[in-house]
Structures are given as C-alpha cells and as structure tokens.
Design a protein around this nucleic acid. Structure first.
Lengths: 196, 196
DNA sequence: CCCACAATAGACTGATTAGTCGGTTTGTAA
DNA sequence: TTACAAACCGACTAATCAGTCTATTGTGGG
C-alpha cells in the first residue's frame, strides 16, 4: 500500500471515529505511519484530503453497483420485468457492498451532508451517477413509476436504501433471511411504482 | 426574548451556516449581543449548548406534529381509514412545519446524525416520540403494514419524509399542488402498507 | 435597607493544531 | 555516474478558541 493509500485509510477510520474537526492531521499521519510533511505533500489541505477520500469511496461504491449482477427475488414476467430486475440488482449490490464495507458506508453516511465536501466533488459524483439515473428515468417515461420529478424520486429511493443499509448493518443476520429481503425490496419498489 | 433565547437563536443560524466547529463561541455571543461569560453561564460547554438547542428544536417539531389536524387527501372508507388519516395528518404537519421553519429543519437534518448530540439527548427525544410510534405499531399489529421490525419501518418512513421535506424546501411552489401532494403521500403510504 | 445569589460582562490564557520550511532520501532518465 | 525531481521527514510557528476568572449589576425576600 502506497503512503498515499495509508493516509487515506487512516483518515477514513479516524474521521468515522472522531469526526473531521476532532481528528488532528497529526493523528492521521501518525496512524498512517507517515510524517506530517508527507501528508501535506499528497494533499494540500485537510479539506482536500477528505474530499479525495469521499470521492474515492463513493466511486468504489458506484463501480460495485454497476458491475455485479445479483440474484432475482421475483421472477414474474411482464413488460416491466427487465427494468425491475436491473433496479433490483442495484438495490441488492448496494446493500451487499455496504455489509462488506461497513466503515466506508459509515463514512459516506456521516459526511454526505457535511459542508466539508465541496461542490466540485459532488459534481464529479453526479457525473459518475448518470448511468444508474437513466434506469429511473426510463421507469418514469414508461409510466411505470409515479409521475414525479426525477430528482425527488431519486432522493426518495436513495434514502430508502440508506435506511435499509443502516438497519442491516446493525442486524446483519437479518440479511440472510430471504423473506425479509423480499419484503424490504417490496417496500422499496412500491415507493417507486404506481399502484395498478 | 431572554438572553438565553438570544444565544440559542444566534447559535442556530451560525451552526447551519458554518457548522459546529467553525462557529467560535465568541461569534455566537457576539451575534446574540451578549458577553462570552454570559454564554458560559447558561451553558457549561459548547456541546451542552448544541444539545439544548437540538432538544428544543426537535421538541418544537414533535409538538407541532401532535396537536394539529390536517386536511385529508383521500377519503375512501374501510377499516384502515382512521389510521391512515391520522398518519396522513402527521405527514402533512411535518412538511408544513418544515416549510414554515426551514432553518430549524436544516439544523435538525445537519446535526441529527452528528456525534455532538449526546445519547442522553437522543433518549429524551425517543421518549417524546412514543406517541407517534404507537400509531405505526398499530398498523403492524393489524396486519396492514409490512411485517417488518418496527425500528426498520420507522426509519424507512422517517427518511421518506425527510427526503420529501428537502425537496419541497427547494421547490416550495410544488407544495401548493394538491396533485403532487397526493402522489408523494401515495408513495409514502405504499412503502408502509402491504399490497392487497 | 440589606443580603445573598443569579445574571452579566469581557479581558485573558493554556492548549491545540493546520500548515510551513529546510533539509534528506529515493527513484529514474540520460 | 550524474543530475533532477518527486517523495518524504519532523521540528517549528502563527493563529485560534473554549472556557476561566474577577468584577459589576440587577433583584427578590426578610
């Protein structure tokens, strides 16, 4: 692991544990086994460090969402079936990644709304998100989802998944239960899809 | 307004604007038109101040949820009608309060997950919440809602409302549109209620 | 009228910390 | 080899800030 990576890894853990302001850069460099000067060689400021970290973690999550396919919980056919399967794969991969990377998720949850994350960082993430966004767009255009602004729908679904992740993170064994998975996904899906 | 209240009001605005750590107590006392000594006379530490503030704001919100009744968007009868109307009133009052108290909501959103809020504060809020919680408990017991742990259901619904509030806060005029209200509430309700 | 105590004031301080600086080491291209 | 830059080091500093301290001003009850 390069010194740069050591610094990011140490920062992740310390930031979750103590928050941004209560984590001196000296503590980060110490935990990373690196000198202060080295830290500021790689990151001009402490804020640049947390932004780089946030971007990396978020992109790692996004990449995971896109590449893997996931087991289907519901095989009923119909014109919507394909879209539902794809979105379900996103949903499943998200929770799966969170359970395998709890610290990373805690970091994202804790700092996602914080003021330390610059707009430029958020824009970069927005771009990377465009792919998944298209799926939801499709659902609205096909008249399958509630006819509401895309932004709103995305926020509603994201918060549903976040809340589910938080829950399964505390109750890990529940994620083994296919029946619970099914119900939570049903709740998720029906928040999106018009009642027939 | 007492000096104590002046301090709380000033702190609210500064905390939203700059965050907790980037708001020196000196700035708070200055904005409140009060001396440093006075601030620390009313609140032993800066953390005690933010906890007091958080508690007050949250209780103000809860009180508002409980007391007012709200227009019904959906008058169909049935055994569930009463519960649905009550929950809809909570839902409506929440968004209504947020739109009338945007700064307070931003404060809650920003610091709700932060480490500055002590467990003792959270416990006090938990108690005050018991009333609303009972409504949801009823829905589960009657088999009306998804058969999932109450904690999970509460988190799912809370995040849905929070996301809605965030949206309407940016797009205030949309809240005037009864049709949108109806759709967002339909999405909210169907996240909870089993499909028939 | 007086006493005790709460509220107010603001100058001050001890501790903390982001970032700098001058220097050494390591890698690498010519 | 040599030369040059990038990576690395850690002591140091200038600035900031939470909370203290001592003094002053209301104020309610006896």
């Amino acid at each position: 692991m390069s010194k740069r990576e050591q610094i990011l890894a140490a920062a992740l853990n310390l930031f979750i544990e103590n928050g941004f302001e209560k984590t001196p850069t000296s503590a980060i460099s110490k935990a990373a086994g690196v000198a202060t000067g080295t830290l500021f060689h790689h990151f001009k400021t402490k804020e640049e460090l947390i932004n780089a970290l946030y971007l990396e973690v978020k992109l790692a999550l996004l990449e995971n969402l896109a590449t893997k396919t996931a087991p289907s919980l519901d095989l009923k056919g119909g014109t919507e079936a394909n879209l539902k399967i794809q979105i379900q794969a996103l949903w499943f991969n998200m929770i799966d990644w969170v359970l395998q990377n709890p610290q990373e998720f805690r970091f994202l949850a804790q700092f996602g709304e914080s003021a330390y994350i610059a707009n430029s960082t958020r824009e970069k993430i927005e771009e990377a998100f465009a792919g998944s966004k298209a799926l939801f767009c499709q659902g609205v255009e096909e008249g399958l989802f509630y006819d509401l602004p895309l932004d709103l729908l995305l926020n509603l679904t994201t918060s549903h998944i976040f809340a589910s992740c938080n829950y399964f993170l505390l109750q890990t064994e529940q994620w083994q239960d296919r029946d619970i998975q099914r119900k939570v996904f049903a709740s998720f899906w029906s928040l999106l899809a018009k009642v027939k």
